[in-house]
Design a protein around this nucleic acid. Structure first.
Lengths: 243, 243
DNA sequence: CCGGTCGATCTGGTCAGACCACTTGACCAC
DNA sequence: GTGGTCAAGTGGTCTGACCAGATCGACCGG
């Protein structure tokens, strides 16, 4: 295993994670009250400011409802949380949640072609050059992780060209969830990234400024791996079959 | 003007907003360093913990890079921020940003039909009843804002039925951005919400478990208002035309 | 008996000041 | 150059105090 940057966990980080686990893994259901800041500080053996920092960060992501004078209550993350919670939900209690993984694959397949179509409308020739260069770099390496990185860069350019802040922000969150686990996911996604030809067809369609062709080409890039991974997930968790 | 809940702004809230403005409105470009916590506290006339809380919340949303011992630097929100930043970008310096508004409309048109298709696959008869009830309620009121609320509830049920955490979380963020401005947006979206018939067609397709029909029906629900609003935006800001 | 008032006592909000831990960069010895 | 050292500045954490809103029971007047 290659060298890795050391990760330092601050006290508030630690508190944040612990409280988040309680909330996400159901230790404290939605609507229930959290212990008071003072009590939490005492129980966890840290200072109150540290607890406050953690709780405020959770409130920032709409996971808690903090009211001056009243108790701090847990909100229903299913109804209020944003995409940033995704990585935490994907891996719950150390195990990958197949339902979440499925939803990611499905969303990719819906959004990807849409973004590609917009990029085709707005990209222009400069974009085609950029995409082609990225694909060249992708084709030249044999390292699975590096190929993932290049594929990510490819989509990054597509999203840029789509000139859509909403898709940009969605992509940011998904990338933030994907990148830390990139090494583990590379083997799974290899099938997709190996199809450089499909990417080139997509690039051509985008470069030609043809949204509908680009949409279809993006689908053809994304669908194979999506299909086989969905099948693998279904085998993993038969309950997903009939849902 | 109807009564409104009083809004209490805490000190860290205030600091958060001010620093956020600096970051988003370009006062401090990406990569630049923020003044030190002590300095900020001094300049703003508040305590250091208050500043810390605000900065940590910003770091939580990937807008800042805080390093122990080093300076706190601003990150490029275009590349790292999540969907939660959307409301803040939509209204910059008190004015609505047409490019952001456009991206929201476009994204809706891409994602909505996709979600509808998934809901059709997985909904079942119970969902059709739920959707029908929601539409009945929508049809019975003349209040524009209430109609928006019901339309939102309609999509909420659709997203639920799609059984997709990713779409759920996306929807949460978009709803969080939409709801506070609901009153202002109601007139703009009236055209869409008035087409109860189109919603009923969509409901039928979902109830019938027919994904492709549902996809098309959702498109027909969303497209008219999308098209006319996009035209209005283009008139507002001609630069959008040729992008 | 009901409804309002008051206040004790919870809760979170804010502050000051101290000290620890880390990063940086200048400087120095090799 | 290379690597060590050190001081200064930054964020990290704690303590303890006090302010301010929320809550609820005890009380009191109708």
């Amino acid at each position: 295993m290659p060298l890795q940057p050391v990760t330092r966990r601050s006290v508030p980080d630690e508190v944040f994670d612990q409280v988040l686990s309680e909330v996400v893994d159901g230790g404290i259901g939605a609507g229930e009250a959290l212990p008071s800041e003072r009590r939490l500080a005492e129980v966890l053996g840290v200072s109150r400011p540290a607890v406050r920092e953690a709780l405020q960060r959770m409130a920032q992501t709409r996971l808690l409802d903090v009211r001056h004078g009243g108790a701090t209550t847990v909100r229903d993350f299913r109804r209020y949380a944003g995409l940033d919670l995704l990585p935490r939900l994907l891996v719950r209690r150390g195990e990958l949640d197949p339902a979440i993984a499925r939803s990611i694959l499905e969303a990719r397949l819906v959004v990807g072609p849409g973004v590609a179509a917009l990029a085709a409308e707005r990209g222009g020739p400069a974009l085609e050059v950029l995409l082609t260069e990225t694909l060249d770099a992708l084709g030249e390496t044999d390292d699975g992780v590096q190929r993932q990185v290049h594929a990510l860069a490819f989509w990054d350019h597509v999203v840029d060209a789509a000139d859509s802040m909403v898709f940009r922000l969605m992509f940011n969150s998904l990338r933030a969830a994907y990148e830390p686990a990139l090494e583990a996911l590379a083997p799974l996604m290899a099938e997709e990234v190996d199809q450089v030809g499909a990417y080139r067809v997509l690039t051509a369609a985008i470069g030609a400024g043809d949204p509908e062709t680009a949409r279809a080409a993006a689908d053809r890039v994304l669908r194979p791996a999506t299909t086989s991974l969905l099948a693998a997930l279904a085998a993993l968790d038969p309950a997903l079959e009939d849902r």
